[in-house]
Amino acid sequence: MELIVFLVLLGLGYVFGRLSESRHYRAIIQREQVLRDISVVPVKIPPPEYLRHESTLVCGSVVISVDYFKTVAASLRNIFGGRVGAYESLLDRARREAVLRMQDEARQLGAETIYNVKYETSRIGENAGKGLGSVEVLAYGTALIASTASK
């Protein structure tokens, strides 16, 4: 009985996890194209040409849940070692989605670029049992908006 529940959860996790992951990746790649013109740089000090720009904080945050299949695959990796591919793609998606949301916000503000970009990652649902839970990725930076004075 325990095994049947386990296999059903595993199957559901795999099917729905894969579906949502591939759909998410398609959306990410497409939106990255659309928002490419809002450059994202980690530099702490902007070059002099932006001296007269207005600046403001922009951030994007995303929470993605781990599916059951991924936790099982990851706990197997715990035994054998090596790249935890299941979590790599999860975090990759979360980081890129967070940047996209930050860029979205910047676009709404009419910004050209975002500098001093940083990431923060945290795990939510520590109490939800071993391995299961969600990850939050927060991307934030300073958006530079061409002010009317500088135009």
Partner: peptide, 27 residues
């Protein structure tokens, strides 16, 4: 100056596109 747009990075650097199912079955 800052770049005018973000570079288009190749896929598969931070996420290995291996088959998770095959990987799982082997492990």
């Amino acid at each position: 100056s800052f770049p005018k747009e973000n570079p288009q990075l190749p896929e598969g650097i931070n996420n290995h596109h291996e088959s998770p199912f095959v990987d799982f079955v082997i492990m």
